[in-house]
């Protein structure tokens, strides 16, 4: 019995040495760290970040969106709200970015989708604070007017920073592209 336990202990000690060898080998091998602010990971493709509007083919300042409200209805977290004006009506009341989810919800229901004339998007707000990145809105969009951004670097001092006004973002992007 003593011999057995001695043998076991000796084997155990050997296993410890083997473990130390493994860590030593890893000590010498190359590092796998991505030095993030200086370099970024190669594989952001396919990542679903927050949504962005896709510009229409003719005018990079105009979104493809036809304000059908499909995305508003499908969104599980009710984080999208959009308003549209019919081209004929001139004065449409301006709505500001809603603050809470309840408001968004009611608004989403209030805005009946305009079916007859092609409505023009007036505001398209995504409250990223509520989004769960499921991608249902993008899939439900009939015109392909939404895409995922790969901006994963968001961080801010207030939560209002992430109530994203996608329309103005689109215009900014178009401007940048022109320059």
């Amino acid at each position: 019995m003593i011999v057995k336990s001695l043998r076991e202990t000796m084997l155990g000690m050997w296993s410890l040495l083997v473990g130390m060898k493994v860590t030593a080998v890893n000590f010498k091998s190359t590092q796998i760290t991505v030095h993030y602010p200086r370099e970024v990971v190669h594989s952001l493709e396919g990542y679903r970040g927050h949504i962005e509007l896709v510009p229409s083919d003719e005018d990079p300042y105009k979104p493809k969106c036809i304000a059908c409200n499909n995305c508003v209805r499908i969104c599980p977290s009710a984080c999208i709200s959009l308003t549209a004006i019919k081209p004929k009506k001139k004065a449409a009341e301006k709505t500001e970015a809603p603050d809470s989810a309840d408001e968004v919800k009611t608004k989403g229901k209030k805005e009946a989708p305009a079916k007859k004339a092609k409505p023009e998007l007036e505001s398209f707000v995504c409250d990223y604070n509520y989004c769960c990145l499921c991608g249902l809105c993008v899939q439900s969009c009939p015109t392909g007017a939404l895409r995922y951004s790969s901006n994963v670097y968001l961080a801010g001092f207030t939560r209002q920073e992430f109530v994203l006004d996608l329309l103005s973002r689109l215009q900014n992007q178009a401007q940048k592209k022109e320059q």
Partner: peptide, 15 residues
């Protein structure tokens, strides 16, 4: 996760 992210779109909470 990189492999999965390319097709599913997320790293952790897949949909």
């Amino acid at each position: 996760q990189d492999i999965l992210q390319r097709i599913t779109g997320s790293r952790l909470t897949y949909c």
